[in-house]
């Protein structure tokens, strides 16, 4: 497992697995989309719009998972002095931001037919929006410092502080939501899923993970090359 913390080994390993991962992500995406569009039933309440879920939910999971990965790599990089962690953080932050953005946009597209507006101050939507802003700040930190050695450390510290703060924000937003809104909407955001919908959801999630890995490999390799040429 040394390829997870060492850039040379990562390069070697990435060259081996890149093509299989790329093929796998495309195949899984096609299969998942076929399942999502043709082989899964309509919802009795929401009709065909429920199919947005197959994009919305995986991207929401992945946006959190990306942050978790960044947190782990920040600890590795800061505590064990492994610069590869900083490389991963820089490379992965925009991917997480894009997943979060996809989650927000698909959520608001889903919300328009369901709630009648593009945006509702629902607890989950608000928390995801906050997560998106945090990703944006990480990217801003990565582009606004001149010294690479400074910005990567600052970004890692910010990620760690953010990982402590995110649960507090989530909790406070949940509390604020129950304070100001009746609980009817939260029923919509916690649906019980039928098995026939579960299969495409799982396939789509795995497809999204593989797409994320593909882009991450490309970005990490680029980042390694950029740093060699400073």
């Amino acid at each position: 497992m040394r390829f997870l913390i060492n850039s040379k080994r990562f390069n070697v390993f990435a060259d081996i697995i890149f093509k299989p991962v790329l093929v796998l992500s495309i195949v899984l995406l096609i299969v998942g989309l076929i399942f999502a569009f043709f082989l899964s039933p309509d919802d009795y309440q929401q009709g065909s719009t429920v199919r947005i879920m197959y994009v919305h939910v995986p991207s929401a999971w992945l946006s959190l998972m990306t942050y978790l990965i960044m947190t782990v790599y920040s600890i590795i990089a800061l505590a064990f002095r492994m610069p590869f962690g900083f490389i991963v953080n820089t490379a992965v932050a925009p991917i997480g931001a894009i997943f979060t953005l996809v989650c927000i946009i698909s959520g608001s597209l889903w919300g328009k037919p369901m709630w009648g507006t593009w945006w509702v101050w629902d607890a989950r939507l608000t928390s995801v929006a906050v997560l998106f802003i945090i990703y944006l700040i990480i990217i801003f930190i990565n582009i606004s410092f001149e010294n690479v050695r400074v910005r990567e450390k600052i970004a890692a510290i910010f990620i760690l502080v953010g990982s402590i703060n995110l649960p507090i924000i989530k909790f406070s937003v949940d509390w604020w939501n129950t304070l100001h809104q009746p609980a009817t909407i939260s029923k919509l955001s916690k649906p019980s899923i039928d098995p026939s919908m579960m299969t495409p959801l799982i396939i789509m999630t795995i497809a999204f993970i593989f797409i994320g890995i593909t882009i991450a490999i490309l970005r990490i390799k680029t980042e390694i090359i950029t740093r060699e040429n400073i």
Partner: peptide, 12 residues
């Protein structure tokens, strides 16, 4: 950037 960092963490 400094103000933005403070404001996002001051939501709670």
């Amino acid at each position: 950037l400094g103000s933005v960092i403070v404001m996002i963490f001051s939501i709670p």
